[in-house]
Write a protein that binds this DNA or RNA. Structure first.
Lengths: 211, 211
DNA sequence: ACCTGAACACCGTTCAAGT
DNA sequence: ACCTGAACACCGTTCAAGT
């Protein structure tokens, strides 16, 4: 069992990220991680101060992996590409990405993503205030969408979920929702993501002059 | 200690919601809740199947409390008012709202909020598909914003956070971010929320014809 | 019907000890 | 320097028992 010398900060971070991504419903724990690394639980604490610190390093590695495309000169295209890159990262690392969104602390490698968005918007002529607000809005959108997607909210509803929904609506209290039932049960993730980007970009274009 | 007969489903739900909202960082647990209710931890399980079920009831009560304003006939105004109502709910119940956003299950009382948004958009002439997508987009925005706000991301940065950020940017790798430093450290939550709504509404208006 | 209490299988983390 | 093992203060939940 003794793995003396084989345990490193990086090996722990990689194993933690893999465990987060693989554990669909059962969750990550320091003790399970140690077991997988075939090491005493307390060995981890020699390399990382505590669970939170380790998670911080996982988040750092996660965001560092985001493949930000080079700027093209077209801010609309750049924003679309950057948002798609974040979405792809979430799909590649669903568990870690979920933990990242909930992680209430600044992760330095986020700077890379923000910098790319800031650059695109400033080059498009947005004011400083509008740029900062627009980036938070874009990040909020892409993170929410990505979490919805990896959680399964953008897949067609199961027969059971669909029946539960229909039952909720059968009282007649929600006529608008009921009229949309067929649309609600059959989402299209790709099209919906593009729809959101279209709305945001058109909206940003609209407020550019006035902001 | 014996509170025989005084424990009800509703009393447990109310106490759980209060505990979630008050516990800033230390978190909710079934055992702490029982202690506060001066009851054996296991007494709770007589009224609620398990922790998840209890949380579901808290979420139900939370969303039922959202004060949705009556429709005015102006879809733009209605959407603004509904989103502000959700934001106010989050401010009133920060801990419960955070739990709600992470709660990976449908909460029936959400129908009320969705119905109001669906009604506004359908009346504005949006197609079914555009309406369903727009509502998810609006909800994603308001939930993200509200969580950011109650987490403290929209307050002026502390001196320490500001210095950490400046240190991150001192290497020159993020020139756009550095140029925005003064704006980043001093957010304005109210103005930012309205900015987001402006962008979304302008954007929805823009895609209405083409969707 | 409603509550208790012991018990089980878990957590994160501290601290003293081993090599 | 790096890892172990016992221990502490927690979890959620089951199950048998009390009233």
């Amino acid at each position: 069992m003794n793995q003396r010398g084989t345990l490193t900060r990086q090996r722990i971070v990689e194993a933690a990220m893999a465990m987060l991504d693989e554990s669909q419903d059962r969750q990550f724990s320091m003790r399970k991680l140690a077991a997988q690394l075939q090491v005493d639980p307390m060995a981890l604490y020699h390399h990382h101060k505590n669970r939170h610190a380790l998670m911080g390093e996982v988040m750092l590695a996660l965001m560092a992996e985001c493949e930000i495309p080079p700027a093209t000169g077209d801010w609309r295209q750049d924003i679309r590409a950057i948002c798609q890159a974040v979405r792809q990262l979430a799909r590649r690392h669903p568990g870690s990405f979920r933990a990242f969104v909930v992680f209430e602390q600044w992760v330095p490698s986020e700077h890379r993503v923000n910098e790319a968005l800031y650059t695109a918007l400033l080059s498009a002529g947005f004011s400083k205030v509008a740029t900062v607000r627009a980036v938070r809005l874009l990040i909020a959108y892409v993170e929410s969408f990505a979490v919805d997607e990896i959680t399964g909210w953008l897949e067609p509803l199961t027969r059971e979920d669909r029946e539960n929904l229909a039952a909720d609506l059968s009282g007649g209290a929600f006529p608008a929702t009921a009229s949309l039932l067929e649309t609600i049960v059959r989402p299209d993730a790709d099209a919906e993501f593009v729809f959101g980007l279209d709305v945001l970009i058109a909206g940003l274009d609209g407020v550019r002059a006035s902001a």
